[in-house]
Design a protein around this nucleic acid. Sequence first.
DNA 1: TATAAAATAGACCATTCAGTCTGTTTTAAG
DNA 2: CTTAAAACAGACTGAATGGTCTATTTTATA
Lengths: 188, 188
Amino acid sequence: MQATREKILDAVFKLVYINGYNGTSMAMILKECAIPKGSLYHYFKSKKEMVLSVVKERIHPRMNEFYQLDVEENVEGIDTIISSIYKVSKKELLVSYGCPLNRLNQEMSPVDKDFEEAINLIYNSLRKKIEVLLNNSSLIEGVDAESLSEFIIATVWGSISLSPKQSSQKRYLATINHLINYLKSLKI
Amino acid sequence: MQATREKILDAVFKLVYINGYNGTSMAMILKECAIPKGSLYHYFKSKKEMVLSVVKERIHPRMNEFYQLDVEENVEGIDTIISSIYKVSKKELLVSYGCPLNRLNQEMSPVDKDFEEAINLIYNSLRKKIEVLLNNSSLIEGVDAESLSEFIIATVWGSISLSPKQSSQKRYLATINHLINYLKSLKI
DNA sequence: TATAAAATAGACCATTCAGTCTGTTTTAAG
DNA sequence: CTTAAAACAGACTGAATGGTCTATTTTATA
């Protein structure tokens, strides 16, 4: 049944989000979704393949949902970016647990090529969207859209990765406000 | 012998830096430093205690060495910060493997209070140093030193955590250049 | 030089790990 | 209704895990 597979992906996403890849055992997963081992290994041939599926089928869509970076008619691209950054502060889980993609990236990318690849795919698609939005904006001269898009992601992800330390989204907003200031200063 | 303890800490730092906490086994550590188990457990009562010692005795000094953030006579604090950020790009390991503190933070802080505490201590000391330097600067009115210090760390750490994806320090510099621009715009 | 403490040494242990194996039940197609 | 494939079920396996235990060697000190 397809529902079983989805149930497994949900459980794995949740546990890996909190405990990381190596911190999550198959026993924990089995217990969380109350599914026998035979069933799980019917859908996934290994733990690694399973978590990679989570990256593609759970984390990727989640990132697209969190960062609403699609081009809108009659809206300056850079304003879409700014409002997207604000909206992130409303996502409590994200601000209090950190970014699931970045968490997994820190743990797995240096150590496993397949994870690095799957994670880079998501990172690049987000970065590219931001670059497109920047190119759809009236900016002062000499602004490099590519490095600026990297700067934006680096700052937002950095802020989120530190925000669990800081008590709340208030802190995230105070931090991120500097980024917004900078972005506004680049508008014509 | 004290040298044995130091050797162990070096090996653990290296392996945990690359593989993470849960990705590094005692067997790997023992092999790396070619020391029998009895000796190792003579110096450390557990893996966790050992890695916490690495945080305090290896990572903390390393961070202070990497980020040279001490107040200098006749130098604007903000210029010290800017040159420190530039200097980070010279540290190849940092830019190509990511920040060891941030790596461990992402993996362990959400899951273990002791790690969270030890890591926060370092984070706060760095942040405070930056705040002091900002207060030692002639900045335009209305700049909040606390949130700005958080913003600086978030951006630098974010850039470093993404820099392994980007081939080189060139990319780190291009990204971080936006931060420098912003900081310069805050000077009187 | 005698003696206790510090340090080295590695065999050993219980537990947990990811993954396999052999069935049984359910579902869908002819 | 028959039959094959899909799905469920969980006992079992070998390797790896962090940690213990006992014994020996080295070092420092009285």
